[in-house]
């Protein structure tokens, strides 16, 4: 019995469930920022677990898998930060019932630089 293959595929399954939940969050959440919260967190962990599981199944691939995991874990938050910043600057509002928006005060006084 190849126990490591079973372990790897179970981890992959868990990861794929997180990916699905992330996509569900992107679909269901009321405004852009909340969608981004669901999207970024769930897809990052989902991708990490999915890839790790496959890396355990095919242990000769583990080097490449680790590099992809590192890259995703580093770039995913950066890209969603850049997108959230742009969206807020563009004036996309928070959903109704939001408590505070302290960034607005800063942006109205922001000196635009070249």
């Amino acid at each position: 019995m190849e126990w490591y293959r079973i372990l790897g595929s179970i981890i992959t399954l868990i990861g794929s469930i997180f990916l699905f939940l992330g996509a569900l969050g992107v679909f269901r959440m009321p405004d852009l920022y909340n969608r981004m919260q669901a999207g970024t967190k769930a897809t990052t962990l989902g991708t990490i677990l999915t890839l790790l599981g496959i890396g355990i199944c095919h242990y000769e691939w583990i080097g490449q898998i680790l590099v992809i995991i590192m890259f995703i874990a580093l770039t995913n938050p950066i890209s969603s930060h850049a997108l959230a910043r742009a969206a807020h600057f563009k004036g996309i509002p928070l959903t109704k019932g939001s408590v505070a928006d302290k960034l607005k005060e800063k942006e109205s006084t922001e000196v635009e630089v070249d």
């Binding site: 997180f18 969050g25 959440m29 919260q37 669901a38 769930a42 962990l45 959903t95 505070a100 960034l103």
Partner: peptide, 23 residues
């Protein structure tokens, strides 16, 4: 991160999405 994901999963799955957002 794992905690974060269970948190997100809880919010996403529940029928009336429980959020109280702000910046």
């Amino acid at each position: 991160i794992i905690k974060a994901n269970f948190d997100v999963a809880r919010r996403v799955v529940s029928p009336k999405i429980p959020i109280n957002p702000g910046i």
